[in-house]
Amino acid sequence: MITLYDYELSGNCYKLRLFMSMLDIEYEVIAVDFYPGKEHKSEWFLEINPLGQLPVLEDNGFVLRDAQAILIYLASKYDAGGKWYPTDQPQTLGDISQWLAFADSITSTSSAARLHDGLFYDFDIEACRAGAHRLFRIFDEHLWFAEKQNRNWICPGDHPTIADIACFPYVILSEEGGISRQDYPAIRRWTDRVKRIPGFVVMSGVFPAGPAFKAAG
């Protein structure tokens, strides 16, 4: 059985809830009181992850931290079709890794801005927002060119990859950090496509695609 150390309002935890729902994997949750309890810095949790960060996933005794690393693990082990992380395609794997790192940069800007505004973290808010906009401009352009080649997803191919999952949460939650997506139409179209992937689930702050999309899909 898989156990997820989870906090509902964490976008990084959401990556895993979202992906496990899409893969139809059953798991149990151990809720961690990230705020206001700071339980991720408590002694018992630091024994599981000395970095004091969420999420952590345990699968039959195998313990893994870092949302992106866990996405790789879950896709490699549980996606029978090998579509989300195609281990036989070196270029795609390189591409995915590049965008997983990009997702981390989104976390350190867009997610940081959200933590500043919502949970009063002491970050340089203007720098966080400027950093997120810089990434979003690059991301929007990438997705726009992908669309011109009839591609729906971040990496080449007909199927979404874990790069889409890794980038989605802190893009869709960006407004909670005061980062509007109004100027990024290709990003907005992409978030709607992600919302229509079978098995999509929401978290607090994320809404499902409207019924019109369901009908079209």
């Binding site: 906090y7 509902e8 309002l9 809720a31 009181d33 705020y35 309890g37 339980e39 919502g118 407004e175 909670e176 978290m203 607090s204 702050g205 809404f207």
Partner: peptide, 21 residues
Amino acid sequence: DKSIRLFQQTIFGQDKPILEN
């Protein structure tokens, strides 16, 4: 306490984008 708290946070987290928009 933790689960009672987290339940309310889930609710409040759903209201937040509505309020901010």
